[in-house]
Design a protein around this nucleic acid. Structure first.
Lengths: 158, 158
DNA sequence: CTATTTCGTCAACCACGTTGACTACCTTAC
DNA sequence: GTAAGGTAGTCAACGTGGTTGACGAAATAG
């Protein structure tokens, strides 16, 4: 493969990280689809996670995810449409529209966590538990600068 | 951060991989912009790389990147518009339109490789060269299935 | 010479992001 | 109590990156 050209070692690392991420994410969603959540898309897990048990609002969500409130609102729309989130009025502030995870959303979230645990175990089986931990430690050290920003336009569109 | 919740260790790994990738890619493009390539988007580097020194066609490119020929064609359009790729007729086959990297494209590619080397060196400075190598080895082992596919819809859209 | 395949493109569509403008509402200050 | 200002949510237009389906032109197979 061109990008794995040994003459350009610098290209290895980003591609490996991307491929590793993709492998995990693809496996997760294949399993999630098998377990009754075929509509759940890769971004959705992060969004559900960010909404959390206490609920939130579109603006807050946008801030948490590093995207605009409009983009967050649209994503909520989609997740509401497939039944993973619901909106409710905030009695204490008529401007706000509370966003909450539905039972179905909670189920998807729970299964995601379980599946990720199993996938991590598979990595541990292949590499050894210590190396997976070391990998996580090292990545944690290096990645701490850009933490948990999902605003895709940084690398893709927009 | 919610997704880094220690109670859900399974969420660590994918997020770390994503964050690591993002950090690298963001740093690359910040530096690339500084060096005279502000139009270069994260995907573009992979595409230029896939076009290669010998040139290719939209269909071939699509196959290499794991996307449709139409998507590949559109991406080529954009890269032609900003001067990184050019099209030429294939004298031996009137259906084909050769896609080639321009000198400007080659410059961007060369700089990308250099910058990635420097970024990798930074990782090596922080973690130690042996751990970076180990990280690459382990990721290579785990990620070997999904190599260099850019079809975002798998995780994002459509 | 005809049938099939392949290459490139067009058109419609979807997911995901952006900015700008606007309404409705809460809050603060006078 | 009202005017002013900030905040929440939505609408509209747009850009990027993907998808499928349809189609003409050119190469290839029979």
């Amino acid at each position: 493969m061109a990008t794995a050209d040994p003459a350009r070692p610098g290209f290895h690392l980003p591609l490996l990280l991307l491929a590793g991420f993709r492998t995990l994410i693809d496996d997760l969603h294949a399993e999630l689809a098998r377990e009754g959540h075929p509509e759940l898309r890769p971004l959705h897990g992060f969004v559900l996670q960010a909404v959390g048990a206490d609920g939130t609002t579109a603006s807050e969500l946008g801030q948490k995810l590093g995207i605009s409130k409009q983009a967050a609102g649209k994503t909520v729309d989609r997740l509401v449409a497939v039944g993973y989130l619901e909106r409710a009025d905030d009695p204490s502030d008529a401007r706000r529209r509370l966003v909450r995870v539905t039972p179905r959303g909670a189920d998807g979230l729970r299964r995601s966590a379980e599946i990720f645990d199993r996938l991590r175990a598979r990595w541990a089986d292949t590499l050894g538990p210590d190396r997976v931990t070391a990998l996580e430690d090292d990545l944690g050290t290096m990645a701490s600068a850009n933490w948990f920003r999902l605003d895709m336009p940084g690398w893709f569109g927009g």
